[in-house]
Design a protein around this nucleic acid. Sequence first.
DNA 1: TTGTAGGCGTTATCAG
DNA 2: CTGATAACGCCTACAA
Lengths: 373, 373
Amino acid sequence: MAAATMKDVAERAGVSTTTVSHVINQTRFVSEENRSKVQEAMKALGYQPNAIAKSLRQKSTNTIGLMISDIANPFFTSLIRGVEDVANAAGFNLILCNTDEKPEKEYTYLDVLQQKQVDGVIVAPTGENLDYFEALVDNGFPMVFIDRRLEGIACPAVLADNENGSYEAVSHLIGLGHRRIGIVVGLLGVTSTTERLRGYKKALAEHGLPFDKELVLPGKSKVESGREAALQLLALNARPSAIFATNNQMTIGVMRALHEQGVRCPDDMAVVGFDDFEWASAFRPLLTTVAQPVYDMGRVAAETLMACIRNKGEAGDKGGAGDKGGAGVTGKADRADAKQVITLGCTLVVRESCGAGGAAAATAESIADAGEN
Amino acid sequence: MAAATMKDVAERAGVSTTTVSHVINQTRFVSEENRSKVQEAMKALGYQPNAIAKSLRQKSTNTIGLMISDIANPFFTSLIRGVEDVANAAGFNLILCNTDEKPEKEYTYLDVLQQKQVDGVIVAPTGENLDYFEALVDNGFPMVFIDRRLEGIACPAVLADNENGSYEAVSHLIGLGHRRIGIVVGLLGVTSTTERLRGYKKALAEHGLPFDKELVLPGKSKVESGREAALQLLALNARPSAIFATNNQMTIGVMRALHEQGVRCPDDMAVVGFDDFEWASAFRPLLTTVAQPVYDMGRVAAETLMACIRNKGEAGDKGGAGDKGGAGVTGKADRADAKQVITLGCTLVVRESCGAGGAAAATAESIADAGEN
DNA sequence: TTGTAGGCGTTATCAG
DNA sequence: CTGATAACGCCTACAA
């Protein structure tokens, strides 16, 4: 049997579909008698409102898209959780899309999400498809960038303070006496990569250390390339005494390389990783990391998107005439929002992977708290 | 400006909406001339078909729901990836739902997904809401269980071979000479928990070891309760020489407890964990684990669901009359599918966390391959 | 306090 | 080879 519709409920209850609709949505007064008749009918028929039909009418789906590079990357995992929690609380659902850092997949998913009429999108952009993104934003489509942003696109972005996180990590190493610090950088063309490298440079400069290109290795944000980068650093004539791996995947690669080469950490090589993870406090070496506020990034991004969606709904109600006059305040807020970049601070979680001075440095450097995830 | 509709395209191209529709879906012949006119019009207007309207007509959304306990649990992460890859390749999208093991959340999400007219659902059931699930299945709603199943519900399930994985892990420990082996078990009332405990008992029995209730501690599948369970095991008068932690979260808790108590692994305590993870090969102790085929579980579950959805579509076309006669083969397959349980084997990944005999045992026991994730 | 009717953007069934 | 036209299930003026 096909699912019951409002019409079926109306017939069974002996009222019009209008009344049924109003009972469901509590959108106008219905007599006690009719209301209970309708409710009984709904229960008897196991009626479930058809959200698709509703969406077609109302032009809103209560669904948002989430486009990230790879859900299998634990970095995104808590982030998604943050998004989903907020979305769910607001009555929204999430459509999940893995771009794998491939612009074509990103492009296709954007199309699909448009077609499915999602009310908005949270996206960690690959760095391409600039025109598409720009068109969407110009068109007033609610969108929020997360983790990275696209320069020149006026769209809210929720980012970690990559530069400062990086700066603190490297300063920590320098404070422990390290003078030659290798860095394994991630995917090029992505803002987070640039910012983390900038923090590295800044820390060196502030402490009067030279910037040596030889110590900067590309890791493509992947385990295997992180491993290769570490091997190259280890093979250097003037081997560094510390390695800074700028994301979780590359950190794993670096640790594997050390392991393979019989290089002990922290005894022979200090290591700091970007991205904290739950295992870090249970296995050796107890890794010092830069913890991103991943859950909060997701949460804030979702809240921002919800706000955009609400704003748009209201703006639409008022029509184009609302541009001048009393609506100015809202208009201003809209403009401000459009360029808003929200940066959340990272936390340096000092453990034991940075060398002998670790314990002393931990207190001297930064009272960091990993928190309970 | 509002998004262009088929009507707009039709007008601009000087044809009917019917023709536009057929051009888009390639569902009947359209003259070369008209086709190109339509295509031009679509491009000029930036036309995107409205999937919601399409879904309303066709009663299919090309969307499936995925209900798991918590996306922040890395176990589910690769699993989701498997689902998404298959779904995406088949032109389906994924709505993600975290139940947090809460039956109420599960219930609500089932409602929402029904309302959003998803074509099917993959779910790791909490163990409750039996009636709801039964009603759905009886109603022919495409559903596949993953990771666990609900007894008595005739619905395909894709599971890891929990019992055997557990059995092998414990046998491995016994083979290394361990006689008292503690086990930290997960959430009760979930089939995977039961099966893993059964494997433990079976291994003991087969090797003539007594089953000691004292050595079975509840860990609720969480880090903190895993830690507490381990502390209790450590406090035992007759302390075990090995601990088997039956999921990744509890493994972390166990390792933390050892760390806190200054108990070295594997020197003072052997450990095996259920669920492998990428870090396991890069940090110490190099943990011996039971690796579940997570990606494949997701993949197979999605393929199974796609098959169910396709079957349903075809069955619907043929109407109720297809029950007897030539359609018998399909009918039989349907029945068989309905009770299908697909079990995928686990792999014991032998590393160094099980005691001195580890290296020798590794070859003797099982040639396990962690694979490159 | 309730009902009628039109339309959201498609697709499918007819007729041309 | 193409086009009217009626649904799909719901919401929402407008009317009573």
